[in-house]
């Protein structure tokens, strides 16, 4: 149910230094007392450089402070402000309104994550699956007891995994994944890409234990290479590539 905020209409005349304004439609939902979500619309002044997060914060500051949104760094580093913006999962702080080419911006909570309230979603499942694949170096020796202070790697060995180490756990890939849309037990592209990140790391010795974890009916075999995860990743991680390369280990193409 679309609802025009009267407060918003009253306050659009607030003297802000912009000649252009857009309509920001924010999905509102509180699981404690709402049966379904609804949209509230706000007219927000924007500049060429205004991000979606800044527009939401503008709403919170001037129109409705009760809008729930999670954010922190405002520079695509913390992975907190993932949401569905005009139908696609994006980081609100990394999406300029001018690049959306629309005067109506619709923001909704990410799909495939339980909603806490409005635009904030629960990340417990994401962090659980991330932890499940053992996201750390597994070896018998450690830096503390070794004679060497560092585990040395060649630049070529670093190239094998460094792309996947850019993951900020924002959850956009899991939100875009068509398998995640229907399979609540699927481990998800984020965790699978991170499994590849550690399996491909020449310092790591835990390949067999990780492959055992993902070689499951709701594991890597449920990925059908739709590639949506890679298209929405704001850090260029390319989970689809990592998953296919990881599958190569299980199919015997890689060792």
């Amino acid at each position: 149910m679309a609802q025009i905020s009267s407060i918003a209409n009253e306050q659009t005349s607030t003297p802000l230094s912009s000649s252009k304004s857009i309509t920001l439609r924010i999905s509102r939902f509180n699981p404690e007392h709402d049966g379904s979500s609804r949209f509230m619309e706000f007219s927000v002044p924007v500049e060429k450089w205004t991000t979606v997060l800044e527009a939401i914060l503008e709403v919170k500051k001037h129109f409705d402070h009760s809008v729930a949104v999670r954010y922190s760094c405002r520079q695509a580093t913390c992975g907190s402000c993932g949401m569905i913006i005009n139908g696609k999962p994006r980081l609100a702080c990394f999406t300029k309104i001018s690049e959306l080419n629309s005067d109506v911006i619709t923001v909704e909570p990410m799909n495939n994550f339980p909603i806490i309230r409005d635009l904030a979603v629960k990340f417990e499942k994401l962090f659980d699956t991330h932890q499940k694949i053992k996201p750390y170096l597994i070896r018998d020796d450690t830096e503390l007891v070794s004679d060497e202070k560092e585990f040395l790697q060649s630049p070529e060995e670093v190239e094998q995994y460094i792309q996947f180490a850019n993951c900020i756990k924002c959850g956009l890939c899991n939100s875009a994944c068509p398998t995640m849309a229907t399979d609540s037990s699927f481990i998800g592209p984020q965790a699978l890409a991170q499994a590849y990140r550690y399996v491909a790391d020449s310092r790591d010795k835990g390949k067999d234990s990780r492959l055992k974890i993902i070689d499951d009916s709701h594991g890597i075999w449920r990925c059908h290479f739709a590639g949506s995860c890679s298209q929405v990743c704001p850090k260029g991680v390319d989970p689809a590539m990592g998953i296919q390369l990881l599958r190569g280990y299980l199919l015997g193409f890689r060792s």
Binding site: E159, Q160, Y161, I162, Q163, F164, N166, A200, H224, F225, G227, S230, Q231, C233, P234, K235, G236, V237, D238, A240, M241, G242, Q244, L245, R247, G248, L251, F253, R254
Partner: peptide, 26 residues
């Protein structure tokens, strides 16, 4: 095509990503 992709054929190689981060697998 999908089976070749699953085998790692034609999906590119891991590399440091540059903005605007066009995914090599696509």
């Amino acid at each position: 095509r999908v089976m070749l992709g699953h085998g790692g054929v034609g999906i590119g190689k891991p590399a440091r990503p540059d903005y605007p981060y066009e995914p090599a697998s696509q």
